[in-house]
Design a protein around this nucleic acid. Structure first.
Length: 259
DNA sequence: ATGGCTGAGATCCTCAGA
């Protein structure tokens, strides 16, 4: 049986609930990984997803951040937060086993401005994340780490090559190196693996300055796969239609299908 | 160099996003 796994930074699940339910009804993912739910666990709209047959694991937080795993298969072995990062109180990582796959929903810090404290926090988060993912590689599982990485790994992944040369956030050398270290360690970027040369393949468009209308986006949401998961990869796409809706999230859902 | 949009939550604005 094929398994469809999707990731979506929804920028508030309570505001976006109608959009997400509509997309889920059409796309029918077996596993949906959410970021920026921006609510505590007790205010997450559980029933709406349970009615559709999803099991739910949450790492919520008031106002900011928050990640979730929704799965048609029962959720087992749930891990909240990176194990080597106990002092970090921001809800940015959740992992669980769903059937034959281990999955994680990750929301890497934005970093705000290169050189700022938040940028240092972003790079520190990557150090913890990368250490954990290298450890997981040794388990030899089909593991999919998906979410908003807030990094465009190569120039082709942004509409504006100047942004890369100017060391802007999402594009700076250090954050790109941090993301690419995950790839070099053995993970496969699902979408790029299947569309190696495709331009204008974006997952996020700024709300401001008519970026969506001008298709001025960046590819910053990724599904990263262990070799065991990559061997099962059949298809991966961005669904850009939800980005065009009224009151849309600034991110589009990205998905992959596995055999 | 700046500003531009959106959401949350507390006040009529600030913080944060990216």
């Amino acid at each position: 049986m094929e398994t469809k796994i999707a990731t979506w930074n929804v920028n508030s699940i309570r505001v976006r609930l109608p959009h997400v339910l509509k997309w889920v009804a059409e796309a029918k993912p077996h596993i949906l990984l959410l970021q920026e739910i921006k609510c505590e666990d007790h205010t997450f709209p559980r029933e709406a997803f349970e009615d559709l047959g999803y099991n739910i694991a949450l790492a919520g937080q008031k106002t900011y951040n928050g990640v979730a795993i929704l799965s048609r298969e029962p959720l087992e072995d749930i891990l909240i937060g990176l194990p080597n990062n106990d002092e970090d109180t921001q809800a940015r990582y959740i992992e669980a086993v769903c059937g034959k796959f281990r999955v994680a929903s990750v929301y890497v810090p934005n970093g705000m401005e290169v050189g700022s404290d938040k940028y240092a926090y972003k790079l520190a988060f990557f150090r913890h994340l990368n250490a954990h993912l290298e450890q997981r590689l040794k388990w030899g599982e089909s593991f999919i780490v998906a979410g908003d990485y807030n990094v465009a790994p190569y120039e082709i992944d942004g509409y504006n090559p100047v942004a890369f040369r100017q060391e802007r956030i999402l594009c700076s050398q250090k954050e790109r190196e941090a993301l690419r270290q995950i790839l070099y360690s053995g993970y496969t970027d699902a979408l790029r693996a299947l569309h190696p040369l495709q331009e204008h393949l974006y997952t996020w468009w700024d709300y401001r300055a008519g970026s969506w209308q001008a298709n001025q986006g960046f590819r910053i949401d990724h599904l990263l796969l262990t070799p065991q998961a990559a061997d099962l990869l059949i298809q991966s796409e961005v669904d850009v239609l939800p980005r065009s809706a009224e009151k849309a999230s600034d991110h589009a859902p990205v998905w992959a299908v596995f055999s």
